[in-house]
Each structure stands twice: as structure tokens, then as C-alpha cells.
């Protein structure tokens, strides 16, 4: 009797919020949810517990950043010296110095207030942009980790899926398209259903087929040639930006493996010690 009443109560209690939730889902008047299209999945080399960065891909991504993004977007937390990182782009020390010296750094101690860049400098700020404020890209792949929704976010704990940010950046870069009928695109804006806070944004399509000639395609070795397509540019620059956002990711995952093995072995030892200690009690 009591049990029946309680179960009925529980059922009602559960049903009412669920009913109002479905009402919320149908409710068109509410806040629209962006991005309109969920990011598309890419098979990244850095995904998963053993994921690592591909130095060649990061070098290509660096080239895409410099040729297609750097005119508007800064990379203010990234020091040139870190480009030599073995688990990152792995540029040689000479290449790092040469690259840094291509930049002009403001320095009040220098004779003219400016000097060529050194390895210890960070990427200088991009020139100011009229009417809008292109974000710094140093941690953009972490800042744009769009929500995955229920119940996907629960599965992500077990699959260790952490690439929603990179997937988003890739999808945005390759997601420009003609607006569907009836969608008004304001002047100076562009339609992209993958954008995080609307369906149009002020950034025009940044990548074009064959617009960037990859340095690694210019060498004599045809085995390392990669296609010069928008898709490839987008993947490469996104991988590079994942590295700028999380430069110690490889260290983190490899230390994680050692910690996990240690803890699991320790747990086993402690468990059997515990069993022995408690044997006389049970």
C-alpha cells in the first residue's frame, strides 16, 4: 500500500518535469541555440590517451596561420622559442631564430623603439582591425569547445573525447556556404551555420583551394606531399592551434599513463593488504 503510493508519487514527480522539458524543447520563442550545426568530427592525431602532435602538420599549420590568419588574429601567448618543442612543431633552433627575426618587436630599450624579434619574444599583436575585434587564437581551440548536450557528454567521460574545440574550428573554417532561402545576411557578414553565436559572422572565408603553397611540397621528396585544399589547410591550422592552446599535451598524456599504471598497481597491492588485514574480522 505505502509502496504503491510512493511509486505513484515518484512517477508523477518524474513525469511532470519531463513533460515540461519536452515543452521547453518545442518552445520556439526561447533563446535560439548555436551553433546551428554541430561541429563535424575529424580524426585528429592528438585525440585519445596516446595522441601526439604531428610535427609536419604543425609546421604546415604554422604556415597557414602566418599566411591566412595572422593579418587579423594575434597569437599573443605563444613564444617563438616554443616552436622548437620536440612534441610540437619541432623547428630547429636556427629556424626559430630566423622566423623570429622576420617580425618587428616594439621594445622601449631598443634605439628606435623597435628591433627584430628574438626566440624569447611572443608573436606580436596583429594590426588593429576596424569595427570588430578578431580574437587572439592562442587558446581558441579550448575557448570554443561547444557543448555536446545530454547524453553525449556522459559518454565523453569514458571515450575521453576532448576534441570538440578543434572540431569546431575545423568546421567553421570549412563551413562557409550560401545562405538558405529566406535567411538575411547583414552587409559585411557571411553565412556559416557552424558559428558559435549566430549563423553569420564578420570573418570572410579565410581559406581558398591552392592559395597556400606548402613548403614541404616544394622539396624533392614526393612522398610527403599533401593536398593543397581548403580541407587540408583547415585541418593543419586547427592542429597547430590545438598545440598553441595545449603545448604540454603530449607530456600530460604520457605522464598520465605512468600515473595510471602506478595507481592501478598500488590499488591492487593495497586491496590485497586490506583483505589480509580484515581476514580475521570477517
Amino acid at each position: 500500500m505505502h509502496n504503491a503510493i510512493i511509486r505513484l508519487l515518484a512517477a508523477i514527480l518524474l513525469a511532470m518535469p519531463l513533460a515540461s522539458l519536452s515543452y521547453a524543447a518545442d518552445d520556439e520563442s526561447g533563446t535560439p541555440h548555436y551553433p546551428k550545426n554541430k561541429p563535424r568530427h575529424v580524426s585528429w592525431s592528438f585525440a585519445g590517451p596516446f595522441g601526439t602532435f604531428d610535427p609536419q602538420q604543425l609546421q604546415r599549420g604554422l604556415q597557414v596561420y602566418r599566411e591566412a590568419c595572422a593579418a587579423c588574429h594575434s597569437l599573443g601567448y605563444v613564444a617563438f622559442r616554443t616552436l622548437g618543442s620536440e612534441s610540437g612543431p619541432h623547428l630547429s633552433a636556427d629556424a626559430v631564430r630566423a622566423l623570429a627575426s622576420e617580425y618587428i618587436i616594439e621594445d622601449p630599450d631598443a634605439p628606435d623603439g623597435e628591433r627584430p624579434g628574438r626566440a624569447s619574444d611572443v608573436f606580436p599583436d596583429a594590426p588593429p582591425y576596424p569595427d570588430s575585434n578578431p580574437p587572439d587564437l592562442s587558446v581558441i581551440t579550448k575557448a570554443r569547445a561547444v557543448e555536446r548536450g545530454f547524453p553525449t557528454f556522459i559518454f565523453d567521460i569514458f571515450t575521453q573525447y576532448q576534441e570538440t574545440g578543434p572540431d569546431y574550428v575545423y568546421s567553421l573554417l570549412t563551413g562557409y556556404q550560401d545562405p538558405p532561402d529566406g535567411v538575411e545576411v547583414p552587409d559585411g557578414n557571411y553565412y556559416n551555420p557552424y558559428f558559435v553565436s549566430g549563423t553569420t559572422l564578420a570573418m570572410p572565408t579565410p581559406l581558398f583551394e591552392e592559395a597556400i603553397a606548402y613548403a614541404q611540397n616544394a622539396d624533392d621528396n614526393p612522398d610527403n606531399d599533401v593536398p593543397e585544399t581548403v580541407d587540408q589547410y583547415a585541418k593543419d591550422v586547427t592542429a597547430f592551434l590545438m598545440w598553441t592552446a595545449e603545448p604540454h599535451m603530449t607530456d600530460r598524456k604520457s605522464l598520465g599513463l605512468a600515473v595510471m599504471i602506478f595507481l592501478i598497481v598500488l590499488a591492487g597491492l593495497v586491496y590485497y593488504t586490506k583483505k589480509k588485514v580484515w581476514a580475521e574480522v570477517h
Binding site: L13, M16, P17, L18, A19, S20, L21, S22, Y23, A24, A25, D27, S29, G30, T31
Partner: peptide, 10 residues
């Protein structure tokens, strides 16, 4: 908003 508030009230 909407149904979420109703559910939260219950």
C-alpha cells in the same frame, strides 16, 4: 525559460 522553469519549480 519555458518548460525548464516549470520543471525547476516542481
Amino acid at each position: 525559460e519555458g518548460g525548464y522553469v516549470i520543471a525547476a519549480r516542481i
